[in-house]
Simulated assay, not measured.
Amino acid sequence: MSVRRFRASASALVLAAVTALGLANPASAAGTTASTSAGTAAVGGYVALGDSYSSGVGAGSYIADSGDCRRSTLAYPYLWAAKKSPSSFAFVACAGATSASVAKSQLSALRPSTALVSVTVGGNDVGYADVMRDCVLSTEATCLKSVKTAVSRMNKSLPSGLDSLYRGIHAKAPRAHVVVLGYPRFYHLGGGCAAGLSEAERSAINRAADVLNGVLAKRAADIGFTYSSVVDEFTGHEICSRAPWLRSVAFPVHNSYHPNASGQAHGYLPALRSAL
């Protein structure tokens, strides 16, 4: 067996892991809302929207009633709210969310008085779960083709979905400071991974993340939202680095390809702070 491929006995675990990347339960997206003391840093309240990178999948310590949305007390929105004590905090981000499902299931948490909104979304719109499945389980050629398809979606279909969502956020919370956070590059190139994907595959996945982040930044700027990259924060802490803040294939499988607790606390939280 080539060192870059897992044994057949591990294939079921890997497939489950990459499927978990796109896990969605829109019915659970009504959210966990917690009120905190008034007279604080975000007068008017803070609403955390988005997908698994905002809900905290991979960080552990999931809130019991958040179900398959897997909202974590170690996720950056929860950490920020615990530190800054906004007048109210609505944590409605959900694993597997797309721009359409955020618009449908999460925007009810917004109010005209909402002062701060954060959101991560876009990865599920372009099929990142499919990309990782193809790259882990198939040939290099299949992987690169899958990445190319995802990049095409980023450039062609994603912008309209983001525009629609962002307009919806602005309509429901017209005075809010809206922070759109990006995604990290997955891989530290030339790092310590002895098996798994080839460098060509890892490079292609990283380049795709750059394209995705570019689209997010452009659509956010066009409507007047603040875009905050997390690439700098995660540099040196990607998969295959000495101290990764991102999980590769993990158990439980829903944690795979997501930031761990350090990634939330030292990657995403500083990126949110820097945008305020």
Score class of each variant (00 low, 15 high):
Ser35Arg: 14
Ser88Trp: 06
Leu79Asn: 04
Leu21Gln: 13
Ala27Pro: 01
Tyr78Cys: 02
Ser99Glu: 07
Thr73Val: 11
Leu49Arg: 01
Tyr53Gln: 06
Trp80Glu: 13
Gly45His: 05
Gly96Tyr: 08
Leu13Cys: 14
Ala75Asn: 06
Ser54Thr: 14
Gly31Ala: 07
Cys94Glu: 00
Phe91Met: 06
Thr19Asp: 12
Asp65Gly: 10
Ser37Tyr: 09
Ser85Phe: 09
Arg71Asp: 01
Ala81Trp: 08
Gly22Met: 06
Tyr62Lys: 04
Ser55Thr: 00
Tyr62Pro: 03
Cys69Ser: 01
Gly45Cys: 04
Gly45Arg: 03
Ser105Leu: 07
Gly45Ser: 05
Val43Asp: 09
Leu74Lys: 14
Ser105Trp: 11
Pro26Asn: 02
Ala30Lys: 11
Leu15His: 13
Ala29Leu: 07
Leu13Met: 15
Gly50His: 00
Ser88Gln: 12
Asp51Arg: 00
Ala16Gln: 15
Ala100Gln: 11
Pro26Lys: 02
Gly44Lys: 03
Ala103Glu: 08
Ala100Tyr: 03
Ser101Glu: 02
Ala30Thr: 09
Ala90Tyr: 07
Ser72Tyr: 07
Trp80His: 11
Ser28Pro: 02
Gly22Tyr: 04
Ser105Asp: 13
Ala97Gln: 12
Ala24Ile: 01
Arg4Asp: 13
Thr32Cys: 11
Leu74Glu: 13
Gly58Phe: 07
Ala103Leu: 14
Ser54Phe: 00
Ala34Gly: 07
Ala16Ser: 14
Lys84Ser: 12
Ser66Tyr: 04
Ser87Lys: 06
Gly50Asp: 00
Val57Phe: 07
Ser88Met: 10
Ser88Asp: 10
Pro77Ser: 03
Ala41Pro: 05
Val47Ala: 08
Ser61Val: 08
Cys69Ile: 02
Phe91Trp: 07
Tyr76Phe: 15
Cys94Phe: 04
Leu49Glu: 00
Ala29Asn: 09
Thr33Glu: 12
Phe89Gly: 03
Ser66Glu: 04
Leu79Thr: 02
Cys94Asp: 01
Ala95His: 00
Ala38Phe: 12
Cys94Tyr: 01
Ala42Glu: 09
Ala75Thr: 02
Thr98Phe: 08
Ala64Met: 07
Ser101Asn: 01
Ser28Lys: 09
Gly22Thr: 01
Pro77Asp: 04
Tyr76Ala: 04
Ala38Tyr: 11
Ala10Trp: 15
Ser85Pro: 01
Leu74Asp: 13
Arg71Val: 00
Tyr62Thr: 02
Ala81Lys: 09
Leu79His: 05
Thr98Asn: 07
Thr36Lys: 12
Ile63Gln: 13
Ser35Leu: 12
Lys104Thr: 14
Ser72Phe: 06
Ala41Trp: 10
Thr33Cys: 12
Ser66Trp: 05
Ala90Arg: 13
Ala12Ile: 14
Tyr78Trp: 15
